[in-house]
């Protein structure tokens, strides 16, 4: 595997690098990024292709929902209430006659946004905390570790609930809350990665070459931590989507008339015995989104290990 994964590197480097040599200097970060992407997209298989298609669909839904449906997600049509799935309403309609397919499509935006933003917040916090612990003096490491242990003692969702209780419900607060809740896990990983990188030969080699700690951190430590973290973050997005939906379901995130999967689940719950489609489709999409992110994340992780 490593051989076949390495092989396409060479032509693609020559291709993206243009004239080989000095031109690469300034762009090496980006160049290795595109190389990475090609490597990933070139070797998807089976479930990963399905997962990628689902995520692409969700991405389109999030960015340009009007491409997928012409109906208004909030448009009420009381006469059409509780229509079961049919050619006209693929996923049926809800208690106010709103088209569920449309609402699911529009809901993708807030779900993905919360998932990605929360993971991003979690990662940024984690890199800061993890770097402090991994590089700082022993006392700082000790302090950060105790803090992380305290955070670990609470289940993540409980931590998010605590935050929302203090700052009030809403999409923004629930995003931050989920981000906060995921940070400790990532921070632990960042810390241990940094510890092992710090002791590695290439850090010593860079020191011998006269590099300052800031340069070493920016050019060697951070990129090497990021490689592993990227795969993990993809896994985390799926988790964050589920948590965000859970918070909305509890009425602490997006509020009912808004098209959001968790909120739709919550609203449909009342009618679950008479109109299963109100809850089934948003629920199915939460599962699909989370599963797709997880499948892709696992694939990335595996490739990372093999390299």
């Amino acid at each position: 595997m490593s051989g076949s994964a390495g092989a396409p590197l060479l032509p693609s480097t020559a291709g993206t690098g243009g004239k080989p040599g000095p031109g690469r200097r300034e762009t090496d970060g980006r160049a290795s990024g595109t190389r990475h992407l090609r490597l990933i997209l070139g070797h998807l298989h089976g479930g990963e292709i399905v997962a990628a298609l689902v995520l692409i669909f969700l991405l389109v839904a999030a960015l340009a929902p009007s491409l997928l449906t012409a109906t208004d997600p909030l448009g009420i049509a009381p006469a059409d209430a509780f229509t079961p799935p049919s050619p006209r309403h693929w996923f049926g309609t809800d208690e106010s006659g709103r088209d569920i397919f449309t609402r699911v499509v529009y809901g993708a935006r807030s779900s993905l946004l919360i998932g990605v933003a929360a993971t991003g917040i979690g990662l940024v916090l984690a890199v800061i905390l993890g770097s402090l612990a991994g590089l700082g003096p022993r006392a700082v490491d000790f302090g950060v570790n105790r803090l992380l242990e305290v955070l670990f003692a609470f289940p993540g969702l409980l931590l998010a609930l605590l935050f929302i209780t203090i700052f009030g419900p809403g999409v923004a607060t629930s995003t931050i809350a989920v981000g906060l809740a995921t940070a400790p896990g990532y921070a632990r990983i960042v810390r241990s990665e940094i510890r092992s990188i710090r002791g590695s030969g290439y850090i010593e080699a860079a020191t011998v070459l006269g590099r300052s700690p800031a340069q070493i951190f920016r050019r060697h430590i951070l990129p090497n931590v990021a490689a592993g973290l990227f795969a993990l973050a993809t896994l985390g997005v799926g988790q964050a989507i589920v948590w965000a939906a859970a918070l909305s379901f509890l009425g602490l995130g997006a509020v009912p008339p808004a098209a959001e999967w968790g909120a739709m689940l919550s609203a449909g719950r009342t009618y679950i015995s008479v109109a299963w489609w109100l809850t089934f489709f948003p629920g199915a999409f939460v599962v699909l989104a989370a599963a797709s992110a997880t499948v892709l994340g696992r694939g990335l992780q595996r490739r990372n290990r093999e390299r």
Partner: peptide, 15 residues
Amino acid sequence: GSFDPRRNVREILAD
């Protein structure tokens, strides 16, 4: 072990 695993020979020497 003394080379940054993310870099190729050119990048190592350029650095």
